[in-house]
Write a protein that binds this DNA or RNA. Structure first.
Length: 488
RNA sequence: GCGCUCCUGGCUCAAUUGGCAGAGCAACGGACUCUUAAUCCGUGGGUUCCGGGUUCAAGUCCCGGGGGGCGUACCA
């Protein structure tokens, strides 16, 4: 397929041909020595000839003088290009340059009459000719941005343009990488071992979600993209890797919305000799480290809320809080009664199963009020098959979910390590499963049978944490290349 | 999946009740040797997402399709 042709591309292709006719390579393989733009800015006025390179972001022509702004990742600087300072060929080349082209320049630095530090260009080289126009965004003297590219569809499909033109977006992705990096540093420095477990799995588990299904040709069997890393990481804990974590993609074949992506990044960590209380501390500390890495303070603005990230986070016990907010002892109600209440509240007419009902009712009565960082603790046992029950109340598990501004950021428990209990729960669950009736991860149970020490486990939704720390209202703004439908 | 809503030159947006498809930036030609949303003069650029329908007349109304956004549902 040939390049799409419109007025702009044709025009640039002609210039490209013209440049080649001048025997100038429009895509030379080497970049001459250069300094980052911000180094030039820091240097200030000097008669020394310095060089840099960057993309032409603006061009203001004044006859025999041309001002260009060029940008590299470190900043933006003005070029002062005067015909008398250049050889004829370079001046001709300048005429064939467009916004978006990438150039190398050298010259002394001086301050113009209007006070702008500029490169008095004596050498001008083309490093890359742009044949496709980029949208032109201008910022006026008041700092107001005009004609910003804001169409989400355009931005997600052409992230290169978004990163080039939208500072907020670029900074958000930089923050994301730093946040992940900070998580690693925090865990590594506390003797956690980072591992990689299978993405392609024969038996998926560790969460309740529909998987993406694939097929392994040479084995002639279906396989699945993982929905969680939990069941593999716990085998490692049983095997003696007592502090272990993995940061990676999980895939869930479910609906997409502001807070759900089919492909999302999760940090799961497991730690022996501790429990869910230890995981609360881990979460608090990870959030601290992440906020620091993102360059935000202990109070962040997210979706119009002032969020105070200072630990300790609030503890919100599931059953008592549900009772308090609803005014009823719902945990003692049977499914039929709960179902009637849920229907009355418009939460759904056909929910019959007690744990789901309790969860829904909790979401209705309590979750919306969880603006400041909170741990919802001690979930009903039916909602938490992989968690350990409390010793004094077997209907309740040692589990928490962390919420900020109503957003679920983490899920953790004191890990269930009773192999007989775990087998029974998983087999019962598998018997009810629509998709994979009776399929249980036997190898995971084998590990528990061999014996896994008491441990706490914690899963953190990395994309969502990035949302909170960078004030992004959609998870798609935290994922470089979110999934979109095919065009056409 | 369902509901609401949006889709107009490269980009950002106009177009009254259905009545000649426009502007700014960008592009092209010209003037201009300190501008910075440079300015001034001139020029070109449209299958109004796609396909049907109603109408003398459709960017606008109706039906179907595609894509996006928001909400909702599913989501241990």
């Amino acid at each position: 397929m040939a390049i799409e042709e419109n007025e702009f591309i044709v025009n640039r292709l002609e210039k490209l041909a013209g440049i080649r006719e001048m025997s100038i390579a429009p895509y030379p393989p080497h970049t001459p020595e250069r300094l980052p733009v911000n180094t030039l800015r820091a240097t200030g006025e000097t008669e020394d000839v310095l060089s840099t390179s960057g993309r032409i972001m603006a061009k203001r022509k004044h006859g025999k003088t041309v001002f260009c702004d060029i940008a590299d990742p470190t900043g933006r600087i003005q070029l002062f290009i005067n015909k008398k300072n250049l050889d004829e060929e370079s001046w001709e080349l300048l005429g064939k340059m467009d916004l978006g082209d990438i150039v190398w320049v050298s010259g002394a630095l001086f301050i113009t009459r209007t006070g702008e530090l500029s490169v008095r260009v004596v050498t001008l080289l083309l490093l890359t000719k742009a044949v496709r126009p980029m949208p032109v965004v201008k910022t006026d003297a008041d700092g107001e941005v005009h004609d910003a590219v804001s169409d989400p569809d355009f931005i997600y499909r052409h992230r290169c343009i978004d990163l080039m033109l939208n500072e907020d977006s670029k900074n958000r992705f930089i923050a994301r990488s730093r946040i992940i990096s900070a998580m690693r540093s925090y865990l590594d420095s506390d003797d956690f071992l980072e591992v990689e477990t299978p993405v392609l799995q024969q038996i998926y588990g560790g969460a309740a979600a529909d998987p993406f299904v694939s097929h392994y040709n040479s084995m002639d069997e279906d396989c699945y993209l993982r929905i969680a890393t939990e069941l593999y990481l716990k085998r490692l804990v049983a095997g003696g890797i007592h502090r272990v974590y993995e940061i990676g993609k999980d895939f869930r074949n479910e609906g997409v919305d502001r807070t759900h992506s089919p492909e999302f990044t999760q940090l799961e960590l497991y730690e022996a000799w501790t429990d869910y209380n230890g995981m609360m501390t881990r979460f608090e500390e990870i959030v601290q480290a992440a906020a620091k890495a993102a360059g935000v303070g202990s109070v962040v603005n997210f979706g119009g809320h002032e969020i105070d990230l200072t630990p300790p986070f609030k503890r919100v016990p599931f059953v008592p809080t549900l009772h308090e907010k609803s005014g009823e002892n719902l945990f003692d109600w049977d499914a039929a009664k709960l179902s009637a209440l849920a229907a009355k509240l418009g939460l759904g007419d056909d929910i019959k199963d007690r744990p789901t009902l309790l969860d829904k009712l909790f979401d209705h009565y309590v979750t919306p009020g969880l603006i400041q960082p909170s741990f919802v603790v001690d979930y009903p046992v039916e909602l938490s098959p992989l968690a350990k029950q409390k010793t004094d109340e077997p209907r309740i598990t040692e589990r928490f979910e962390a919420f900020i501004a109503g957003l679920e950021l983490a899920n953790a428990f004191s890990e269930q390590n009773d192999p007989l209990y775990q087998r029974e729960v998983l087999e019962n669950q598998a018997a009810l499963s629509q998709h994979r009736k009776g399929v249980v991860d036997q190898e995971f149970l084998y590990a528990l049978e061999v014996g896994m020490p008491p441990a706490g486990g914690l899963g953190i939704g990395v994309d969502r944490l990035v949302m909170v720390l960078t004030d992004a209202m959609s998870i798609r703004d935290t994922i470089l290349f979110p999934h979109l439908r095919r065009e056409q």
